[in-house]
Design a protein around this nucleic acid. Structure first.
Lengths: 338, 338
DNA sequence: GAAATTCACGAAAACGGTTTCGTGTTGATA
DNA sequence: TATCAACACGAAACCGTTTTCGTGAATTTC
């Protein structure tokens, strides 16, 4: 087992000083031809690579970015991570992924763990619990230490930082408009509590109905506690209400709902149409395939990474924060009338 | 913007030495009551947290583990990551995720980048390209430097290290047995080139057929170049062959195939049954839902993390490598006859 | 031939901790 | 009163780099 070789080893072996080795390997003009060649050859031979940790300590830059998301087994978040990873990697950064598992405490612990020098900046999306507690002190703490932070998707106005979101309100608005335009009259909404994105989508739903002079029927709205599916609640909902279209704030709700109504013998989209949020594999391969509001996760991750690395590499421009809004687009499939 | 406070700051402020501060904060017996209390109070007040990088440099332990996977927008890999993350986090480790994007070069670059001190060990699954090139020098390099490595799912015998896999051969065997037992006679296989897991699954398919005295029909086997879907090839396949059951090495192949045959008017599972690998959301929410071979990704990740952290924390037991085999289980759903 | 440059390299500080090994002061002991 | 622990703390080395500043020798300049 050949241990990693250091500058000190090379220096000792070649009987020169550590500084000389360091400079020689950076091809400094200060060092003579012969010495440089000798050192470079030796370094190559023993496959010398500088120790990242030592370099990080020296220049207070880790080239790591911390990403904290609520869950990873979730198509949207994985696409965002991919976007972040691709961009960061091209810029020479590594991505440290932490899962808050929708828990406030884990979110706080993870941030504190990484904030002590492990990363140059954060990209994060809030956990459900954090959004319902409405407690953002851990984020404020981090930003007040001068650590750059970019929030995406699930964000809050309480924290001053760069943000990137899709236009959720408008996405929902367009979706509902589409349903109305195709002649649907009784449009249901399945959303969740406390989540910023869910709230914005709900606004879009209200707006579209209002514009068309349609009344909001509270019984047409099913609010679930979180983004994970609660099958009984949905079964129950469709036993209770009689609607001809449904907008769901995520694709699982929509897919599951479609199965329920299909089992009741209803035809999609003739009897009842569906639109979901998050354009994932489920939407694409469902039967019928699901019309959905694309969130452009990969693009979102890329923008977030870009904003973060910009901030990291140019300390000057502090305190000017941008919020990038990505337009939501509707991917039409079989679950809606054209 | 309050910058991070260091031992040096505290020492200067309280007019003691840095060593005294360090010891006081570790509650060392060496330091007097009064001094300790004073220092601890001060540290708490200014929210002192030791710098991870400095600690890493000192004790040559980063508490980071590197995970390299081919793709993250893939249910199986995300479940593995979740398993790794959960276990690692509980043990105080962070997870650095790198995507090889199925590319040999990116795999090599990522490993080299992390191997220079950033991580204590690797967990990885080979990229398609690496498996087809059959070049594992980057892995051998890493292990020869004494960096612990655990491979999962897509592994190779060429590298001596801990491994965790599911019993792919047996999973496929059980799946095909199930199809045969339910009376199916013409069983197709959709697999991929070069992938260790795909090869093992193909063996299981052969074995089950052989045991039942059924002949392997080469035209019943469709081999795709990689795990991503090639729609035309599948369309074509089902125009060409007439089979009454299909085993697919991943769920996308199966889901897509089901849609194809449904459009041709065939009934599932009466006319044609399907079993896929990877028990993801697609299988669960497809219509009909898909019987599948569960890969227990989360468990796999947990075991891999456990093996790795064991090795990292007990340097002694080098050169005894284990391969943990997880039994594949079949999740029965609507796409097969019971 | 003396002074001024240039050249090629080394010493040392710094990053932020941990840890070993003194060492001066105190109180107890003989 | 001289001796010796025990106590409480500091100096310094170390982890592996980078970088500033010196410095002795060689070379050029006048």
């Amino acid at each position: 087992m050949k241990r990693k070789i250091t500058l000190k080893h090379i220096a000792r072996e070649l009987d020169v000083s550590i500084s000389t080795v360091s400079k020689a390997l950076k091809n400094s003009e200060e060092i003579g031809r012969d010495t440089k060649e000798k050192i470079q050859a030796f370094a190559k031979l023993y496959n010398y690579k500088p120790n990242n940790i030592a370099i990080s300590l020296k220049n207070k830059r880790t080239k790591n970015i911390g990403v904290i998301i609520p869950d990873i087994v979730h198509h949207f978040f994985t696409t965002v991570i991919r976007g972040i990873e691709m961009y960061a990697n091209a810029k020479g950064y590594n991505v440290i992924v932490c899962l808050s598992d929708e828990s406030f405490d884990k979110e706080v612990i993870n941030m504190e763990m990484l904030a002590n020098g492990s990363i140059d900046g954060f990209i994060m999306s809030l956990s459900t619990e954090t959004q319902s507690k409405n407690d953002y002190n851990h984020l404020k703490e981090v930003t007040s230490q001068g650590i750059p932070l970019v929030m995406f998707d699930r964000v809050t106005d309480e924290v001053q930082c760069d943000k990137v979101v899709i236009n959720d309100r408008d996405g929902a608005y367009k979706a509902v408009r589409k349903l109305i335009d195709s002649g649907k009259k009784r449009i249901a909404l399945i959303n969740t509590e406390n989540l910023s994105v869910s709230n914005a989508r709900t606004e879009g739903y209200y707006q579209a109905l209002a514009e068309s002079g349609m009344e909001v029927m509270p019984e047409y709205i099913l609010t679930l506690p979180h983004m994970s599916i609660v099958e009984d609640a949905i079964d129950d909902f469709f036993n209770r209400v009689d609607v001809d279209a449904v907008l769901c704030v995520n694709e699982i709700f929509a897919i599951y709902s479609m199965r329920i109504v299909q089992k009741k013998g209803m035809r999609i989209p003739e009897d009842i149409a569906f639109i979901g949020f998050t354009d994932g594999l489920l939407s694409k391969y469902a039967n019928p395939s699901l019309t959905s509001v694309a969130q452009h996760g990969e693009r979102m991750g890329e923008i977030a990474a870009q904003m973060l690395i910009d901030k990291v590499e140019n300390d000057q421009e502090e305190d000017i924060f941008r919020t990038e809004v990505i337009e939501a687009t509707i991917i039409e499939r079989e679950s809606t009338l054209n």
